[in-house]
Write a protein that binds this DNA or RNA. Structure first.
Length: 376
RNA sequence: GGACGGGUGGCGGAGCGGCCAAUCGCAUCAGACUGUAAAUCUGACGGACUUUGUCCUUCGUAGGUUCAAAUCCUACCCCGUCCA
């Protein structure tokens, strides 16, 4: 599914193409997060318009509501949500972390109490595979435990062992169910855990690779640990992953992290930052972060980001968006989200070009000269 | 002219002798947000300073009672409702 088309001469960065049943996805790629089958506030058409080819949705949430059977009967997730490009589904492993007060982990799986109506649901590696196959996502993720930070070595080790075991069960279920997926080309990614412990990360990586997946993800990142620790994990673990498979840093990240991790050979990212922060009033710009709520933008008639060619910056001013945001107008949330997603895609394009042109390091420095220069 | 009710920090609105520089909401000023239970959350919000504390000036105005008043009393000035 994955082909590398260019390797950086200066770093471990590379460019590639992921081919799924719903088209080609150039890497490095940043996936917007569409948990409920929608990137909050923006439409499929808008995502396409700004150049999105892949986003991440969530099997756990879609299972609870509206339900996999309903989606399946609608003709699958793509058709249901009106998206004919690629979709990656997260398994619910993150919800093991984020909804930790509503679940109980056993060897068998995770028993969740629905945050919607309190009802009980058992998620097992097998059921989560079936679920994602039923949804028909292009790339499925193994069911894992996203380990909280900080975790003791013992907890991290036990959890890592469990995630490995679950990965095997996921693979088995995936392989054995293959006939049911008839013409559907679905791929399955394994997830490396191990918390902040490099030896556990290494062991997790090697044993996950042994199971053999279509791609490999680093999970349990950006869950509250200091940035230098995240960096240490990625720098040390990414090189252990197979060169010829896509590498995915789950839940990451900031513009800083995109540069840093692509430099270390990561190909795929996803993060709620552009969408959530956008809804909370923050615009990402090449000059740094802009909190559009701030008084200083009330009479700033320039675009969110000077020189940005996105559908927002070409049409709307900071002042107006500031006004909309303060007035609680929904349009502000949409405009900020759309701009931020465009920013991330543009940033990825910039990085991609620098890989092509073998000037990654100088382009990175140039980016941060301006980005840092106006940050805070 | 009379009878009630009321005047509290930018606004609304609690408090009705000490625990009040004064609950709360809004507004304002900032900050956070990383595989989304998030259009959310946090902090500041009379002033000054040696800022987990100290001091100064506040609850219509002016007096008074009291060890102590936004809270009680008196007068006055405003505002609202009703009666003439």
């Amino acid at each position: 599914m994955f082909e590398i088309i260019k390797k950086s001469k200066e770093t471990r960065a590379r460019k590639g193409i992921m081919r799924t049943a719903h088209g080609e996805v150039n890497t490095p790629v940043f996936m917007p997060v569409a948990t409920q089958g929608t990137v909050k506030t923006v439409s499929s058409e808008e995502l396409k318009k700004i150049g999105t080819h892949l986003f991440v949705s969530n099997a756990y949430h879609l299972y609870l509501r509206p339900g996999a059977k309903l989606i399946n009967s609608a003709g699958g997730l793509h058709k249901y949500i009106n998206w004919d490009r690629s979709i990656l589904t997260d398994s619910g492993g993150f919800q093991v972390y984020s909804l930790s007060t509503l679940r109980k982990i056993t060897k068998e799986g995770v028993k969740f109490q629905s945050h919607i109506d309190g009802s009980s649901h058992l998620f097992t590696p097998e059921s989560v595979m079936d679920l994602q196959m039923e949804l028909g996502s292009d790339i499925m993720m193994c069911f894992d435990e996203c380990v909280p930070y900080p975790s003791t070595y013992e907890y991290a080790k036990n959890s890592m062992e469990m995630t490995i075991d679950w990965a095997k069960r996921c693979k088995k279920q995936f392989v054995e169910s293959k006939t049911e997926r008839v013409n559907k080309k679905q791929f399955l990614f394994g997830i490396v855990q191990g918390s902040t412990y490099l030896d556990l990360r290494k062991e997790s990586a090697l044993r996950t690779i042994e199971i053999d997946f279509d791609g490999y993800a680093l999970g349990g990142l950006a869950v509250g640990e200091p940035a230098d620790i995240t960096n240490e994990i990625v720098v040390n673990t990414a090189p252990l992953l197979p060169e010829d498979k896509p590498r995915y840093a789950m839940g990451v990240g900031t513009p800083e992290e995109l540069w840093a991790y692509i430099e270390n050979g990561i190909d795929v990212f996803d993060c709620v930052l552009p969408s959530r922060n956008g809804r909370n009033g923050q615009a990402l710009t090449f000059s740094g972060k802009v909190n559009i709520r701030n008084a200083q933008y009330s009479n700033d008639f320039g675009p969110l980001d000077e020189g940005c060619s996105c559908p927002v910056c070409t049409e709307y001013s900071r002042s107006f968006i500031h006004h909309l945001f303060r007035s609680g107008e929904l349009l502000s949330l949409r405009l900020l989200t759309l701009h931020n997603l465009f920013f991330m895609l543009k940033l990825i394009n910039l990085i991609s070009t620098s890989i092509d042109e073998d000037n990654f390091l100088s382009q990175k420095e140039k980016f941060f000269d301006k980005y840092k220069g106006n940050n805070r």
